[in-house]
Nucleic acid binder design. Structure first.
Lengths: 205, 205
DNA sequence: TTCGAAATTGCGCGCTCTGCAAAATTTCAA
DNA sequence: TTGAAATTTTGCAGAGCGCGCAATTTCGAA
């Protein structure tokens, strides 16, 4: 289930990746996903339009395929870590362990970030995926903190964790300074341990 | 600019409200916005389909019209309070001053909440509006904390504030307990002052 | 080599959303 | 009161989306 079993599975994965790549490439070329059609993406990847929609419900979903996969792996990592760590530490370490900076090309990530933040439909899609992550993780957080998923505390903690993930990655992407991604993530998670109303120790950041 | 000026303005506002109401009514009746068409909403409000799209870009936007208006007023309140209060207090007090519980019908809010959380398209629309709010508020937060909008700190603080607004309202809506909305909001904001990793003082909530 | 499962494809359909221009309505001044 | 002028409403057309369905092709396993 973890390893690529049959040849069929591998071809499907390749097609999906090809479609996602095509979507990103075309969106960059045309400076915005809105001026790219599903037809073009399918053609670029060498499949029919109908096949495109077999793999992705929308072009936005295609462009954010990597992101969606990543949240899936994060969730798995979180679930594992939550068994032995406090939930906040589990979030921080699971986030760091994703190793965005090694797994993906930095410039490509910046391009994607750029595209997302200048397209309402992509912002909505990404936010929607975050909310999906929220819904899937709330049980873990509730269990880990001995609260109910309807309580206030686990919602706030989970929301803070997701905000931290998103903000620290985006901040590092736009201006890494002299920090590694892991350091930036760690710093961001630390803010909430002290209390977010405490002003930052250093000017800036 | 604040008061209803001309008759024309009032009619437009009335039409917009009628369309939004129609959207909510139909979505409740049909148990989901996906099974409601723009045609139906327009017909219910007594205008043409084309006119509906003059007022709203989508049925989701129509359903969330109140929400969008509210975030606008929140932003205005925040801008004002940020001149004299610490930004965190400004957020808390501006949120409380919205008085959702008095301005809107509780049961209607619950219905809307129910609809949103069982519809991917509405989740995306609402999340998108939150991101819009984020983009509009980040300058205020940066200025108020003496940081740059590209820094990590203002993003985390703003993200935490938005999460707090959303979570506390939703929590209170699903289970008010014996608290008022204002009390719940206050409690939620307090969590982040102590540090979110501190477990809640009482079991539950 | 052949069979059966799985993937691809074409077609059709209802719906969304926008631009454009005509028609209806409202406003305001003469 | 009446006649432009401005504004809003509307219909129409068109590009595009997303999905169900059924036919066809492809591929892996026996």
């Amino acid at each position: 289930m973890a390893e690529p079993t049959g040849l069929r599975e591998r071809k499907k994965a390749a097609t999906k990746a090809a479609l996602s790549d095509a979507a990103l490439r075309l969106a960059i070329a045309k400076e915005g996903i809105e001026s790219v059609t599903a037809d073009e993406i399918a053609a670029e990847a060498g499949v029919s339009t109908r096949t495109f929609h077999n793999y992705f419900p929308s072009k936005e979903a295609a462009l954010l395929y990597d992101f969606h996969e990543t949240t899936g792996r994060l969730l798995a990592g979180l679930r594992e870590r939550a068994r032995t760590q406090p939930i906040w530490d589990a979030f921080r370490d699971a986030t760091i362990d994703m190793h965005f900076d090694e797994k993906f090309d930095i410039d490509e990530m910046r391009c994607r970030e750029q595209l997302i933040h200048s397209s309402p439909s992509l912002i909505k899609e990404q936010s929607g995926q975050f909310m999906e992550l929220f819904a899937e993780a709330i049980d873990i957080v509730a269990a880990s903190t001995g609260t109910s998923k309807d309580d206030l505390y686990p919602r706030l903690l989970l929301g803070a964790a997701l905000v931290t993930m998103k903000s620290s990655t985006e901040h590092w992407l736009t201006d890494p300074g002299d920090r590694t991604l892991a350091e930036t993530i760690t710093e961001a998670f630390t803010y909430f341990e002290r209390g977010i109303t405490q002003p930052p120790p250093l000017p800036g950041n």
